[in-house]
Design a binder for these strands. Sequence first.
DNA 1: TATTGTTATACTCTATAACTATA
DNA 2: TATAGTTATAGAGTATAACAATA
Lengths: 168, 168
Amino acid sequence: MAHKRAANSRSRPVGGETGEAGPGEKALDLSALTEITGYPLRRAQLAVFDDFNRRFASLGLSPAQYSALVAIGDNPGRKQSEIAGALGIQRPNFVAMMDELERRGLAERLRSDADRRSHALALTRSGSELVARARLVQDEQERAIAQLLGPEGRERLVALLRRLAKIE
Amino acid sequence: MAHKRAANSRSRPVGGETGEAGPGEKALDLSALTEITGYPLRRAQLAVFDDFNRRFASLGLSPAQYSALVAIGDNPGRKQSEIAGALGIQRPNFVAMMDELERRGLAERLRSDADRRSHALALTRSGSELVARARLVQDEQERAIAQLLGPEGRERLVALLRRLAKIE
DNA sequence: TATTGTTATACTCTATAACTATA
DNA sequence: TATAGTTATAGAGTATAACAATA
Protein backbone atom coordinates (compact mmCIF):
# COMPACT_ATOMS: atom_id res chain seq x y z
CA MET A 1 0.00 0.00 0.00
CA ALA A 2 1.40 3.27 -1.08
CA HIS A 3 1.30 6.24 1.24
CA LYS A 4 0.76 9.19 -0.96
CA ARG A 5 -0.03 12.28 1.01
CA ALA A 6 -1.50 15.12 -0.97
CA ALA A 7 1.63 16.65 -2.41
CA ASN A 8 2.31 20.14 -1.24
CA SER A 9 1.58 22.15 -4.35
CA ARG A 10 3.26 25.43 -3.58
CA SER A 11 4.56 27.32 -6.57
CA ARG A 12 8.27 27.19 -6.91
CA PRO A 13 10.74 27.64 -9.71
CA VAL A 14 11.98 24.70 -11.69
CA GLY A 15 15.42 23.23 -11.58
CA GLY A 16 15.77 22.96 -7.84
CA GLU A 17 18.39 20.27 -7.83
CA THR A 18 19.82 19.96 -4.37
CA GLY A 19 20.94 17.54 -1.77
CA GLU A 20 23.38 14.72 -2.20
CA ALA A 21 21.24 12.23 -4.02
CA GLY A 22 22.92 8.89 -4.31
CA PRO A 23 23.32 7.19 -7.68
CA GLY A 24 20.04 5.85 -8.98
CA GLU A 25 18.11 7.99 -6.51
CA LYS A 26 15.96 10.86 -7.62
CA ALA A 27 17.09 14.16 -6.20
CA LEU A 28 14.88 15.68 -3.57
CA ASP A 29 13.22 19.05 -4.02
CA LEU A 30 14.93 21.39 -1.58
CA SER A 31 14.18 24.54 -3.54
CA ALA A 32 12.21 26.03 -0.65
CA LEU A 33 15.43 25.87 1.37
CA THR A 34 18.01 26.79 -1.24
CA GLU A 35 16.15 29.97 -2.12
CA ILE A 36 16.27 31.41 1.38
CA THR A 37 19.43 32.94 2.79
CA GLY A 38 19.97 30.87 5.91
CA TYR A 39 20.20 27.43 4.35
CA PRO A 40 22.88 28.04 1.69
CA LEU A 41 24.62 30.32 4.19
CA ARG A 42 25.00 27.44 6.61
CA ARG A 43 25.92 24.92 3.92
CA ALA A 44 28.51 27.28 2.46
CA GLN A 45 29.99 27.96 5.89
CA LEU A 46 30.37 24.24 6.53
CA ALA A 47 31.91 23.69 3.08
CA VAL A 48 34.42 26.52 3.52
CA PHE A 49 35.36 25.36 7.02
CA ASP A 50 35.78 21.76 5.82
CA ASP A 51 38.07 23.04 3.09
CA PHE A 52 39.93 25.17 5.65
CA ASN A 53 40.43 22.15 7.90
CA ARG A 54 41.89 20.12 5.05
CA ARG A 55 44.27 22.93 4.06
CA PHE A 56 45.34 23.60 7.65
CA ALA A 57 45.60 20.00 8.84
CA SER A 58 49.38 20.01 8.46
CA LEU A 59 49.65 23.27 10.42
CA GLY A 60 47.34 21.92 13.14
CA LEU A 61 45.13 25.00 13.18
CA SER A 62 41.34 25.14 13.41
CA PRO A 63 39.47 28.16 12.05
CA ALA A 64 38.98 29.43 15.61
CA GLN A 65 42.68 29.03 16.41
CA TYR A 66 43.68 30.78 13.21
CA SER A 67 41.37 33.71 13.95
CA ALA A 68 42.69 33.95 17.51
CA LEU A 69 46.33 33.97 16.40
CA VAL A 70 45.69 36.57 13.70
CA ALA A 71 43.72 38.76 16.13
CA ILE A 72 46.48 38.56 18.73
CA GLY A 73 49.22 39.14 16.17
CA ASP A 74 47.53 42.22 14.75
CA ASN A 75 46.62 43.57 18.22
CA PRO A 76 49.47 42.70 20.58
CA GLY A 77 49.16 43.73 24.20
CA ARG A 78 45.37 43.60 24.25
CA LYS A 79 43.58 42.00 27.17
CA GLN A 80 42.40 38.42 26.87
CA SER A 81 38.80 39.54 27.26
CA GLU A 82 39.19 42.11 24.48
CA ILE A 83 40.46 39.53 22.01
CA ALA A 84 37.74 37.08 23.00
CA GLY A 85 35.05 39.76 22.79
CA ALA A 86 36.16 40.95 19.37
CA LEU A 87 36.00 37.40 18.06
CA GLY A 88 32.58 36.79 19.60
CA ILE A 89 33.92 34.13 21.96
CA GLN A 90 32.65 33.92 25.54
CA ARG A 91 35.44 34.68 28.00
CA PRO A 92 35.23 31.31 29.77
CA ASN A 93 35.52 29.47 26.47
CA PHE A 94 38.59 31.44 25.47
CA VAL A 95 40.56 30.18 28.46
CA ALA A 96 41.06 26.68 27.07
CA MET A 97 41.93 28.20 23.68
CA MET A 98 44.71 30.28 25.25
CA ASP A 99 45.86 27.32 27.36
CA GLU A 100 46.37 25.33 24.18
CA LEU A 101 48.04 28.13 22.21
CA GLU A 102 50.36 28.76 25.15
CA ARG A 103 51.06 25.03 25.60
CA ARG A 104 52.11 24.88 21.94
CA GLY A 105 54.33 27.92 22.41
CA LEU A 106 52.43 30.03 19.88
CA ALA A 107 51.03 32.76 22.14
CA GLU A 108 51.66 33.98 25.66
CA ARG A 109 49.83 35.71 28.48
CA LEU A 110 51.81 38.61 29.91
CA ARG A 111 50.83 39.88 33.32
CA SER A 112 50.07 43.58 33.12
CA ASP A 113 51.77 45.80 35.73
CA ALA A 114 49.09 48.49 35.36
CA ASP A 115 46.22 46.09 36.13
CA ARG A 116 47.38 42.83 37.64
CA ARG A 117 44.03 41.20 37.00
CA SER A 118 44.44 41.22 33.25
CA HIS A 119 46.56 39.33 30.77
CA ALA A 120 48.11 41.13 27.83
CA LEU A 121 48.32 38.70 24.92
CA ALA A 122 51.07 38.41 22.35
CA LEU A 123 52.42 35.94 19.83
CA THR A 124 55.71 34.23 20.46
CA ARG A 125 58.31 34.25 17.71
CA SER A 126 57.20 30.71 16.86
CA GLY A 127 53.60 31.89 16.77
CA SER A 128 54.45 34.77 14.45
CA GLU A 129 56.25 32.41 12.11
CA LEU A 130 53.33 29.99 12.07
CA VAL A 131 50.86 32.81 11.38
CA ALA A 132 53.04 34.02 8.49
CA ARG A 133 52.90 30.57 6.93
CA ALA A 134 49.21 30.22 7.73
CA ARG A 135 48.38 33.46 5.93
CA LEU A 136 49.90 31.99 2.78
CA VAL A 137 47.72 28.90 3.09
CA GLN A 138 44.71 31.14 3.67
CA ASP A 139 45.60 33.09 0.53
CA GLU A 140 45.41 29.82 -1.37
CA GLN A 141 41.88 29.25 -0.13
CA GLU A 142 40.88 32.74 -1.23
CA ARG A 143 42.32 32.10 -4.66
CA ALA A 144 40.36 28.84 -4.88
CA ILE A 145 37.17 30.71 -3.96
CA ALA A 146 37.98 33.45 -6.47
CA GLN A 147 38.38 30.76 -9.11
CA LEU A 148 34.94 29.36 -8.24
CA LEU A 149 33.08 32.66 -7.99
CA GLY A 150 35.25 34.94 -10.06
CA PRO A 151 37.39 37.61 -8.38
CA GLU A 152 34.57 40.16 -8.35
CA GLY A 153 32.13 37.49 -7.18
CA ARG A 154 34.35 36.71 -4.19
CA GLU A 155 34.72 40.38 -3.30
CA ARG A 156 31.01 40.98 -3.63
CA LEU A 157 30.30 37.97 -1.43
CA VAL A 158 32.64 39.17 1.32
CA ALA A 159 31.12 42.66 1.21
CA LEU A 160 27.58 41.27 1.46
CA LEU A 161 28.54 38.93 4.31
CA ARG A 162 30.10 41.79 6.27
CA ARG A 163 26.93 43.81 5.91
CA LEU A 164 24.90 40.82 7.06
CA ALA A 165 27.16 40.11 10.02
CA LYS A 166 27.45 43.79 10.86
CA ILE A 167 31.18 43.45 11.40
CA GLU A 168 33.86 45.95 10.37
CA MET B 1 22.05 25.13 18.88
CA ALA B 2 21.28 26.76 22.16
CA HIS B 3 18.82 29.58 22.17
CA LYS B 4 18.04 30.53 25.69
CA ARG B 5 17.29 34.14 24.85
CA ALA B 6 14.41 34.22 27.30
CA ALA B 7 12.14 37.22 27.62
CA ASN B 8 13.01 38.51 24.20
CA SER B 9 10.99 37.13 21.36
CA ARG B 10 10.41 40.33 19.47
CA SER B 11 11.81 40.31 16.01
CA ARG B 12 14.66 42.57 15.22
CA PRO B 13 16.65 43.33 12.14
CA VAL B 14 19.26 40.80 11.19
CA GLY B 15 22.62 41.40 12.73
CA GLY B 16 25.00 40.10 15.33
CA GLU B 17 27.57 41.34 17.70
CA THR B 18 30.20 43.44 16.06
CA GLY B 19 32.93 42.52 18.44
CA GLU B 20 33.51 46.14 19.21
CA ALA B 21 34.42 46.85 22.79
CA GLY B 22 32.49 49.14 25.06
CA PRO B 23 32.78 52.90 25.16
CA GLY B 24 36.27 54.19 25.79
CA GLU B 25 37.84 51.12 24.21
CA LYS B 26 39.66 51.37 20.92
CA ALA B 27 38.38 48.97 18.31
CA LEU B 28 40.68 46.12 17.41
CA ASP B 29 42.12 45.66 13.96
CA LEU B 30 40.47 42.55 12.55
CA SER B 31 40.94 43.53 8.91
CA ALA B 32 43.03 40.45 8.18
CA LEU B 33 39.99 38.39 9.14
CA THR B 34 37.17 40.48 7.72
CA GLU B 35 38.79 40.48 4.28
CA ILE B 36 38.85 36.72 3.93
CA THR B 37 35.74 34.73 3.11
CA GLY B 38 35.55 32.32 6.03
CA TYR B 39 35.38 34.81 8.88
CA PRO B 40 32.48 37.02 7.73
CA LEU B 41 30.82 33.86 6.42
CA ARG B 42 30.80 32.36 9.90
CA ARG B 43 29.79 35.62 11.60
CA ALA B 44 26.97 36.17 9.12
CA GLN B 45 25.73 32.62 9.57
CA LEU B 46 25.61 33.08 13.35
CA ALA B 47 23.83 36.44 13.00
CA VAL B 48 21.22 35.04 10.63
CA PHE B 49 20.61 31.99 12.82
CA ASP B 50 20.32 34.17 15.93
CA ASP B 51 17.77 36.27 14.11
CA PHE B 52 15.99 33.10 12.96
CA ASN B 53 15.83 31.82 16.54
CA ARG B 54 14.26 35.06 17.75
CA ARG B 55 11.68 35.03 14.97
CA PHE B 56 10.85 31.34 15.42
CA ALA B 57 10.88 31.25 19.24
CA SER B 58 7.09 31.40 19.41
CA LEU B 59 6.78 28.55 16.88
CA GLY B 60 9.34 26.49 18.78
CA LEU B 61 11.39 25.67 15.69
CA SER B 62 15.16 25.60 15.32
CA PRO B 63 16.76 26.11 11.90
CA ALA B 64 17.42 22.37 11.71
CA GLN B 65 13.83 21.52 12.59
CA TYR B 66 12.50 24.02 10.07
CA SER B 67 14.68 22.58 7.31
CA ALA B 68 13.60 19.04 8.20
CA LEU B 69 9.90 19.89 8.15
CA VAL B 70 10.20 21.75 4.84
CA ALA B 71 12.20 18.90 3.30
CA ILE B 72 9.65 16.31 4.45
CA GLY B 73 6.71 18.47 3.38
CA ASP B 74 8.10 19.00 -0.11
CA ASN B 75 9.19 15.37 -0.47
CA PRO B 76 6.56 13.22 1.25
CA GLY B 77 7.08 9.47 1.29
CA ARG B 78 10.85 9.65 1.12
CA LYS B 79 12.94 7.42 3.35
CA GLN B 80 14.29 8.80 6.61
CA SER B 81 17.83 8.28 5.35
CA GLU B 82 17.09 10.18 2.13
CA ILE B 83 15.80 13.24 3.98
CA ALA B 84 18.73 13.14 6.38
CA GLY B 85 21.24 12.72 3.57
CA ALA B 86 19.83 15.58 1.53
CA LEU B 87 20.10 17.87 4.56
CA GLY B 88 23.65 16.75 5.32
CA ILE B 89 22.63 15.18 8.62
CA GLN B 90 24.14 11.87 9.73
CA ARG B 91 21.50 9.16 9.92
CA PRO B 92 22.04 8.41 13.62
CA ASN B 93 21.64 12.09 14.46
CA PHE B 94 18.40 12.34 12.53
CA VAL B 95 16.71 9.73 14.75
CA ALA B 96 16.35 12.08 17.74
CA MET B 97 15.15 14.84 15.40
CA MET B 98 12.35 12.60 14.08
CA ASP B 99 11.55 11.38 17.60
CA GLU B 100 10.94 14.98 18.63
CA LEU B 101 8.97 15.96 15.51
CA GLU B 102 6.83 12.84 15.94
CA ARG B 103 6.39 13.46 19.67
CA ARG B 104 5.08 16.94 18.85
CA GLY B 105 2.73 15.49 16.27
CA LEU B 106 4.31 17.40 13.38
CA ALA B 107 5.70 14.52 11.31
CA GLU B 108 5.25 10.77 11.21
CA ARG B 109 7.16 7.66 10.23
CA LEU B 110 5.13 5.35 7.99
CA ARG B 111 6.29 1.76 7.63
CA SER B 112 6.79 0.97 3.98
CA ASP B 113 5.26 -2.29 2.70
CA ALA B 114 7.71 -2.47 -0.19
CA ASP B 115 10.76 -2.36 2.08
CA ARG B 116 9.90 -2.99 5.70
CA ARG B 117 13.28 -1.74 6.85
CA SER B 118 12.57 1.83 5.86
CA HIS B 119 10.38 4.61 7.18
CA ALA B 120 8.52 6.82 4.73
CA LEU B 121 8.26 10.28 6.23
CA ALA B 122 5.35 12.68 5.99
CA LEU B 123 3.99 15.73 7.74
CA THR B 124 0.84 15.45 9.80
CA ARG B 125 -1.95 17.93 9.18
CA SER B 126 -0.70 19.83 12.24
CA GLY B 127 2.82 19.78 10.81
CA SER B 128 1.64 21.11 7.45
CA GLU B 129 -0.20 23.92 9.17
CA LEU B 130 2.86 24.82 11.23
CA VAL B 131 5.09 24.80 8.17
CA ALA B 132 2.66 27.06 6.35
CA ARG B 133 2.87 29.59 9.18
CA ALA B 134 6.63 29.13 9.45
CA ARG B 135 7.11 29.94 5.78
CA LEU B 136 5.46 33.29 6.37
CA VAL B 137 7.82 34.01 9.25
CA GLN B 138 10.74 32.98 7.05
CA ASP B 139 9.51 35.33 4.35
CA GLU B 140 9.74 38.15 6.89
CA GLN B 141 13.38 37.33 7.52
CA GLU B 142 14.09 37.39 3.81
CA ARG B 143 12.43 40.77 3.53
CA ALA B 144 14.57 42.06 6.41
CA ILE B 145 17.69 40.80 4.65
CA ALA B 146 16.53 42.34 1.36
CA GLN B 147 16.07 45.62 3.19
CA LEU B 148 19.63 45.42 4.50
CA LEU B 149 21.33 44.28 1.29
CA GLY B 150 18.87 45.45 -1.33
CA PRO B 151 16.71 42.92 -3.20
CA GLU B 152 19.35 42.31 -5.84
CA GLY B 153 22.04 42.13 -3.15
CA ARG B 154 20.12 39.40 -1.36
CA GLU B 155 19.60 37.43 -4.56
CA ARG B 156 23.24 37.77 -5.53
CA LEU B 157 24.29 36.61 -2.06
CA VAL B 158 22.11 33.50 -2.23
CA ALA B 159 23.40 32.65 -5.71
CA LEU B 160 27.03 33.04 -4.59
CA LEU B 161 26.44 30.96 -1.46
CA ARG B 162 24.88 28.16 -3.48
CA ARG B 163 27.92 28.08 -5.74
CA LEU B 164 30.17 28.03 -2.72
CA ALA B 165 28.23 25.28 -0.97
CA LYS B 166 28.05 23.33 -4.23
CA ILE B 167 24.39 22.67 -3.65
CA GLU B 168 22.00 22.65 -6.59
C1' DT C 1 26.32 -9.55 2.41
C1' DA C 2 24.26 -5.00 2.31
C1' DT C 3 20.99 -1.55 3.94
C1' DT C 4 17.71 0.98 7.34
C1' DG C 5 16.94 2.55 11.52
C1' DT C 6 18.68 2.54 15.93
C1' DT C 7 21.63 2.75 20.27
C1' DA C 8 25.63 4.10 22.53
C1' DT C 9 29.36 7.01 22.84
C1' DA C 10 32.66 10.59 22.44
C1' DC C 11 34.23 14.91 21.13
C1' DT C 12 33.49 19.78 20.04
C1' DC C 13 31.27 24.21 20.62
C1' DT C 14 28.69 27.19 23.30
C1' DA C 15 26.32 29.44 27.38
C1' DT C 16 25.92 30.46 32.37
C1' DA C 17 26.86 30.69 37.33
C1' DA C 18 30.14 31.23 40.63
C1' DC C 19 34.73 31.49 42.44
C1' DT C 20 39.65 34.24 43.07
C1' DA C 21 42.35 38.04 42.89
C1' DT C 22 42.59 42.25 42.03
C1' DA C 23 40.75 47.10 41.39
C1' DT D 1 31.19 46.86 44.28
C1' DA D 2 33.02 45.86 39.86
C1' DT D 3 36.17 43.60 36.64
C1' DA D 4 39.50 39.84 34.54
C1' DG D 5 40.43 35.42 34.42
C1' DT D 6 39.11 31.04 35.76
C1' DT D 7 36.47 26.69 36.97
C1' DA D 8 32.70 23.75 36.58
C1' DT D 9 28.92 22.32 34.18
C1' DA D 10 25.20 21.69 31.08
C1' DG D 11 23.33 21.77 26.56
C1' DA D 12 23.52 21.39 21.57
C1' DG D 13 25.68 19.55 17.39
C1' DT D 14 28.30 16.07 15.19
C1' DA D 15 30.90 11.76 14.03
C1' DT D 16 31.63 6.68 14.32
C1' DA D 17 31.00 1.76 15.62
C1' DA D 18 27.90 -1.79 16.19
C1' DC D 19 23.51 -4.10 16.58
C1' DA D 20 18.63 -6.06 14.98
C1' DA D 21 15.51 -6.46 11.34
C1' DT D 22 15.13 -6.88 6.69
C1' DA D 23 16.63 -7.17 1.93
